[in-house]
């Protein structure tokens, strides 16, 4: 009843409003053009994604056709015999990214905890900004800095004692075997960890701030310490978004190119040692692409690896975005 009444009122009101809004024919024409432009731009983004996937897949098709699915698990990379397999770079990509996450997450959690609960109010903004500036430093700078500073440091101070201490233990030792060159998978992961640290930390900080103050105050009210409030209230409340933030960091680490290329050693050999050299999809593409002939099977294999990397990072980033949905971040 009341609905039909209000409907009647609306109908009556409409003629009054209409002439004002559609004051001229040209403005409705302008609206159509502007809306069309906006929608075209939106569709362009979808087309862009489709074009990236398609161009990598088409470029990699000769390689996929020649090697089939075994491309993903064979470790050959032999331009002379035209035999190519992606196992080593795929392994390197996954291992460096996961190792980087393992190192970055505790640090990022500590930073987020410090910035939301421990730091004095006036101190939070400058420290938060400084941490975020770590994300602004270009990848090439991390690479150069890693190559000239971290690699010698690892070769001199970190790897020899670890190799001496752990290298002879039967199973674990395999992880720490080999000569201490300073480069290698572990060094690459360390630099990646520093690079993704600000992404994870600032996501965590932002989601920690979404916890309603009432929850935390109730916990403080029954006598919880700051850490207990963090562990029992803040972390359970935000765990989905925290995982989303970690996935975001993982997605970033998977595709990092320049920093890794400088320090990973660039060898296409499957190494069980964390200090051994290796490569990642991004680093092998950056290094080998300029040396590949147009139309060669090698070029196609690199594009195929690019396709694999795109699929992996797309899945990881899509998961991250879904987990972060409620509290989206710029």
């Amino acid at each position: 009843m009341s609905q039909s009444l209000s409907g009647g009122e609306l109908k009556q009101a409409r003629p009054l409003v209409r002439p004002l809004v559609r004051s001229s024919r040209s403005s409705s024409w302008g609206d159509a053009v502007f809306a069309g432009l906006a929608k075209t731009a939106g569709l362009l983004v979808l087309v862009l994604l489709g074009a990236i996937i398609a161009s990598l897949f088409i470029g990699g098709w000769p390689s996929f056709r020649a090697f089939g699915l075994s491309f993903l698990v064979t470790a050959d990379w032999d331009p002379v015999q035209d035999m190519f397999g992606g196992a080593v770079p795929i392994y390197g990509t996954l291992v460096t990214a996961v190792l980087a996450i393992v190192m970055a997450v505790p640090l990022a959690f500590g930073i987020a905890f410090y910035l939301t609960e421990l730091a004095p109010g006036w101190f939070r903004r400058p420290v938060g900004t400084a941490i975020e500036l770590l994300a602004a430093v270009p990848s090439i700078i991390y690479g150069m800095w890693g190559f000239y500073m971290i690699v010698p440091f690892m070769a001199e101070w970190v790897q020899p004692p670890l190799i001496d201490a752990l290298g002879d233990i039967p199973v674990l030792g395999a992880l720490f075997a080999g000569p201490p060159f300073g480069t290698g998978i572990f060094t690459a992961a360390l630099i990646l960890a520093v690079m993704i640290l600000p992404f994870i930390a600032s996501t965590m900080r932002d989601v920690f701030l979404t916890v309603p103050a009432v929850f935390k105050e109730s916990a403080y009210g029954v006598g919880c310490t700051t850490w207990e409030v963090m562990r029992s209230i803040v972390v359970p409340y935000t765990r989905v978004s925290v995982v989303g933030g970690i996935m975001l960091g993982l997605g970033r680490a998977l595709g990092e190119t320049m920093a890794v290329t400088f320090v990973i050693g660039n060898t296409n050999r499957l190494s069980t040692s964390l200090f051994g050299p290796g490569n990642t999809i991004a680093s092998i593409v950056a290094l080998e692409f300029p040396e590949s002939q147009a139309g060669s099977l090698k070029l196609s294999s690199l594009l195929a690896l690019g396709f694999v990397l795109f699929v992996i990072s797309f899945v990881v980033l899509a998961c991250s975005r879904m987990l972060l949905q409620p509290g989206r971040k710029a």
């Binding site: 990236i52 975001l248 997605g251 595709g255 190119t257 593409v285 795109f310 990072s313």
Partner: peptide, 10 residues
């Protein structure tokens, strides 16, 4: 957040 090297390849 997509790997920028892939945009180069594209």
């Amino acid at each position: 957040s997509a790997p920028s090297i892939l945009i180069g390849l594209f």
